[in-house]
Design a protein around this nucleic acid. Structure first.
Lengths: 181, 181, 181, 181
DNA sequence: CACTAAACGAGACGGTACGTCGCGTCTTTCT
DNA sequence: AGAAAGACGCGACGTACCGTCTCGTTTAGTG
């Protein structure tokens, strides 16, 4: 497991080989296969031991809380180890439902926490009563991941833009906004 | 090239092998390598001969036009051949800038057309003058792709939700909205 | 191993391909490479399982024994499977000392036996006390191999000529000798 | 042709490629194939332009002349460029009679000269009247080539031993003969 | 002098084999 | 009994040359 993480860091998901993990763990390949049927499952589980969710108290101030939420999405999906690994795993996850499940579990706590922030705001009237929180989160994550995949701009302004979208229902403005803020 | 498309359809990007393409084209491996240095480049170019952009006249009615734009994004990124292939290519594209360029070119015409729709609406005052059109499009595409990747719900309501987001600056509502439309 | 012999018989050393041997043995190429680093080593070992030395009792009559010795050299270096393969291997053997060692081992028993015949004759005074037996054998083998390589005459008289050379210290005579014997 | 020699020197017969020769000659592959149907023919012809025979006057002293003859055989078949190339060509020559012819022509002048030395000695009674000169020469060449191929000892004594064999009809003696010379 | 045709350079082509890597299974060996 | 070690059949990798095959482009030689 630790070995998996090491290899993953050194070589990425593509460079990770069952053979390599086994060797670096001082273990027979057989043993690895015994416990994890696929590379995806192995990595999924390894990541799950590695990443842990640090819950954050909501401040109650909508803009602050949303901004933080967006920030964490960007971090998680842009330069984190997870983000580097996820796209390489895309295919395997699509063909290995159990691994997908495992990976999705990793997002669970953060997602729940984020939803609770949103619905707290709904509760006090800052956001519409029939808000589709899940979609909001997907919009944020999706936008960030998409830009990351395509190698497009992911500068700091995108955080403001997405925050404004949620807090003010405001469509993103062209980003020479730092001078107007 | 045609052979590449065939193999791609049969076996997906992962199942596509230079050897297979060569054989199925009745061609030596060397010839394939001579023209396309990597699998990603080969597939990118094959896709580009396959996909063509059908421009659509804007109606002038913002909601209709945006709706159509969103619809096309969903089609392009959900069940199209391209959509099935893209995630599998993610890793290679990340390590093969030329292939990425080629793939991005595929999006070019549709993207330009979509931008023109948005900025036409900006022009007649239906959308804010300082709109970040590129980000809007990324939000739409990103959201759709993200849900597609995670295997999440991509029913018809998402089209309405994203349309409303752009047209009415309205955050997505929970989707029992078909009864209210 | 058996497969190697088969392929060797069918196609000679040049036509023998690791790939072919592997296929015809129902085995992965890797396995072949695991055990024999080079084609030369593989063939050398295959030959060594195939060829076995049949020792022959010396009669004590010098001419008879030498004649038989020469005869066997001609057989071994002219039309035997080994002889057909050896020249094709020349280059590889020159660049693969271990394979050369292996091949030389094949000659070992016959060479030893031949030397013992010679030195027995030295012992009873039929041949000079300070005879260079090794060179005698090389002269016989070398002459035969050389003619074989150049496609030159290797008729039966050469056996007599070489025998006489050793037994009578007599230089080879022009070979219409069958009528004078 | 000059290019062929260059490549031959750099890379040996095995490393010599029609492609390489063509390139290094600044010539299309086609042109090479037009003039020389096979690698063997090409090399054979190249060698024939390179090697020339320097006739040597016979001294009339048998031992001196024979010794020189043997010496030249050793030089030609041991460390000369030809000797390095010949074994690698063995297979091709066996399957390309025209190339063999060409190569044999290279030996022609030297062979003729050597035969004339022998038969001059026959003429003045120093060697038996019915001597098989061709075989004598093959014995010398064969022995040298054989030892060369097998990587066996080819020190200076072998020259004395072979000379004695011819001049004195004496079988080779074990070679601590340098102290007696 | 212009025209033609052979010979040419360049290099693409369909192939075959190379030696390597990683797969996922299976067997042997040793605790 | 269970794990390490690693052999195994397999299939793809990307490379090197093979000998064949167009392509224009020189270069003579001839009319």
């Amino acid at each position: 497991m630790v070995a998996t993480i090491d290899v993953l860091k050194d070589s990425g998901y593509h460079g990770l080989t069952i053979e390599r993990v086994a060797t670096s763990a001082g273990v027979g390949k057989t043993t690895v296969y015994r416990w994890w049927p696929t590379k995806a499952r192995l990595v999924a589980e390894a990541l799950s031991t590695q990443l842990e969710f640090h819950p954050v108290a909501a401040t109650g101030d909508l803009r602050t809380d949303i901004r933080y939420l967006v920030q964490r999405a960007v971090q998680a999906l842009h330069r984190s180890p997870l983000a580097q690994v996820l796209p390489e795993m895309a295919y395997d996850l699509d063909h290995d439902p159990e691994a997908r499940e495992e990976i999705l579990k990793l997002f669970g706590p953060a997602r729940a926490s984020n939803l609770s922030v949103l619905y707290a705001a709904v509760g006090n009237g800052s956001l519409p009563y029939d808000l589709d929180g899940a979609l909001i989160l997907d919009i944020i994550s999706g936008t960030v991941l998409y830009r990351s995949l395509l190698g497009r701009d992911l500068g700091p302004h995108i955080i403001d833009q997405l925050t404004d979208l949620v807090v003010d229902f405001r469509l993103p403005r062209a980003h020479p906004r730092h001078d107007s803020s």
